[in-house]
Simulated scan of single mutants.
Amino acid sequence: MIKLVNLTKFYPSKIGRQYVFKDLNFEIPDGHNIAILGKNGAGKSTLFRILAGSEYPNTGQIRTKKKFSWPVALATGIHPKMTGRENTRFIGRVNGVFDLDDYEQKVFEFAGLKKKFDLPVKNYSSGMRSRLAFACCISIDFDIYLIDEATSVGDPSFKRKAKDALLSKSRSANVIMVSHELDDIRMFCDSAIVINDGELTFYNNLEQAIDIYQAI
Results as ranks from 00 to 15, higher is better:
158 F>G: 03
96 G>F: 07
183 D>Q: 10
74 L>F: 12
205 N>C: 02
195 I>C: 01
91 I>V: 03
194 V>N: 11
155 D>Q: 11
29 P>K: 08
23 D>K: 07
73 A>W: 07
185 I>P: 00
172 S>Q: 14
146 L>N: 02
186 R>A: 08
74 L>P: 13
187 M>S: 12
215 A>I: 09
162 A>D: 04
153 V>D: 06
206 L>M: 01
54 S>F: 07
198 G>F: 01
6 N>P: 06
170 S>H: 05
119 L>A: 14
209 A>P: 02
2 I>P: 00
70 W>Q: 12
138 I>Y: 00
49 R>K: 15
61 Q>P: 10
3 K>W: 02
151 T>L: 12
94 V>D: 13
41 G>K: 01
63 R>V: 15
7 L>I: 00
135 A>C: 07
184 D>Q: 12
184 D>H: 11
163 K>R: 15
191 S>A: 13
123 N>D: 12
163 K>A: 12
88 T>Q: 03
101 D>E: 15
38 G>Q: 09
103 Y>C: 11
61 Q>N: 14
55 E>K: 09
101 D>Q: 12
102 D>Q: 13
11 Y>L: 02
116 K>I: 08
65 K>L: 13
3 K>Q: 14
150 A>C: 06
62 I>L: 10
107 V>F: 11
169 K>F: 04
17 R>P: 14
109 E>Q: 13
130 S>L: 07
13 S>A: 13
30 D>R: 14
28 I>N: 00
212 I>V: 10
27 E>A: 09
11 Y>I: 04
155 D>N: 10
188 F>E: 00
85 R>I: 05
158 F>A: 05
10 F>K: 08
22 K>T: 10
132 L>M: 14
101 D>T: 07
80 P>N: 09
96 G>C: 12
204 N>F: 04
215 A>P: 05
15 I>A: 13
121 V>I: 03
199 E>T: 11
194 V>F: 09
50 I>W: 04
84 G>Y: 05
16 G>C: 11
201 T>V: 10
70 W>S: 11
187 M>V: 01
118 D>Y: 10
120 P>W: 13
203 Y>F: 13
208 Q>M: 05
51 L>C: 04
47 L>M: 06
149 E>C: 05
142 F>I: 03
129 R>T: 13
202 F>Q: 01
39 K>F: 04
52 A>R: 03
128 M>C: 13
194 V>A: 15
209 A>E: 00
190 D>M: 07
70 W>P: 11
161 K>A: 05
214 Q>P: 06
49 R>D: 14
203 Y>S: 06
138 I>T: 09
16 G>W: 08
191 S>N: 02
102 D>V: 03
123 N>V: 12
31 G>T: 01
1 M>N: 14
29 P>Y: 01
198 G>V: 09
134 F>H: 02
61 Q>G: 13
144 I>G: 02
188 F>M: 14
91 I>F: 08
79 H>T: 09
208 Q>N: 10
33 N>A: 02
31 G>V: 08
206 L>D: 00
201 T>M: 15
93 R>E: 14
84 G>M: 06
149 E>G: 04
207 E>F: 00
116 K>M: 15
157 S>E: 15
141 D>G: 06
169 K>G: 07
11 Y>P: 08
62 I>T: 06
122 K>T: 05
160 R>A: 15
98 F>C: 09
